[in-house]
Simulated assay, not measured.
Amino acid sequence: MEQQMINIYENNLYNKSDGFDQILRYLDIDLSNILKKMPLLIRKRVEEIRLRIGRPLAINYDRKDLFIKANGVLTDKVYDAYIVTEKNIRNTFQLISNYSIYAFEEEIRNGFITISGGHRIGITGKVIYRNNNIYTIKEISSLNIRISREKKGVSDKVIKYVIKKPNTIYNTLIVSPPQCGKTTLLRDLIRNLSNGIPKLDFYGLKIGVVDERTEIAGIYKGYPQNDIGLRTDVLDSCHKFDGMMLLVRSMSPNVIATDELGEEKDIIAIHKALKAGVKIISTVHGESINDLLTRPYLKQILKENIFERIILLSNRKGVGTIEDIIDGKTYKSIIKKEV
């Protein structure tokens, strides 16, 4: 019965078109017509679309940056590329904000807007301050459109190392350089732990997510655009410290998940959550354990052996390559012992 509920939930939520096609609806018509001409295989692999006034229309796919001609052909020659105009940027920004910039003021202050499908649009331009705080961004000069694509099942190889009998988990830290799949892995771990894994005799846990940058759940008008499981509650666009404390007080989570630790307040919040009996899953930018030990706050929490499992990622064999899984108390490899 529970598996039927999961199937219904996923079918209802994810009966949607490819992310690239969704994005085209939010672009200036001239840009949309150009990008429609790109080969289908490339469109399915595009990770970012970059719009910069007076500079070439560019995409990022397979970790490569390429420009686009007016006929949709890819090129590495600047003089061949379509040059993005102020009109392209203005019209795209109006479509992204649904012609109501005021409705997105808070997101604009944070430098990005999340649209239907969980896609995130980064913004640069003239920053306006009030009372020493960012008030808004005007005269938009660049847009970075990051296409959200879920990769279900990426946590299947590591889930058995995260689960702890009976029906709980190890406090887990995912360490990865930028764009190596740490948020993707975190999201899929949340989904699996929330739904439960019958073949491992693991029942679903209540997961509280602090989604500070709207990248984990991709909340849009209250609805998660990504599959985060049946038992997951999300605080969207909330600072990690505030969010962890709110979840502990109000939602009685078994696990709190969040992305990109780094500040002192993050570490304080983790200590408070642990005292309340809550388990933690999080991520952090880093190349290795030694890299983390050079940062005071992360060094502190590692030395306390709070994280019992440390998953190291890279893109050596493609995004999401699992380099190692380390025991957080002994700092010895768990998976290499099994080989």
Rank of each mutant, 00 (worst) to 15 (best):
C180I: 05
G19D: 03
E260K: 02
D211R: 09
I134W: 13
N133E: 15
N315A: 15
S314Q: 09
D62K: 08
D188T: 02
I163C: 02
K317W: 01
N305G: 10
K77V: 11
L298S: 01
V84I: 13
K165G: 07
Y203K: 10
Q3P: 02
T214W: 00
K64Y: 09
R249S: 10
T232F: 09
T321D: 14
K199T: 12
R130Y: 12
E264L: 13
K138N: 12
I23K: 06
R187V: 00
E263F: 10
K279P: 11
D233W: 02
K126N: 14
D236Y: 06
R120C: 00
R109Q: 14
G117I: 04
E105K: 15
S32A: 12
E105L: 15
E304V: 08
G196I: 06
P253G: 00
Y161L: 03
R146V: 07
I147V: 07
P56K: 11
S252Q: 01
L189A: 10
S142E: 10
K332F: 03
K275T: 13
G181Q: 08
Q225I: 02
A58S: 15
V248Q: 12
V255P: 03
I190K: 06
I53M: 11
G262K: 07
P296T: 08
P224Q: 01
L274T: 03
V73F: 10
E150V: 06
L313W: 06
T124K: 05
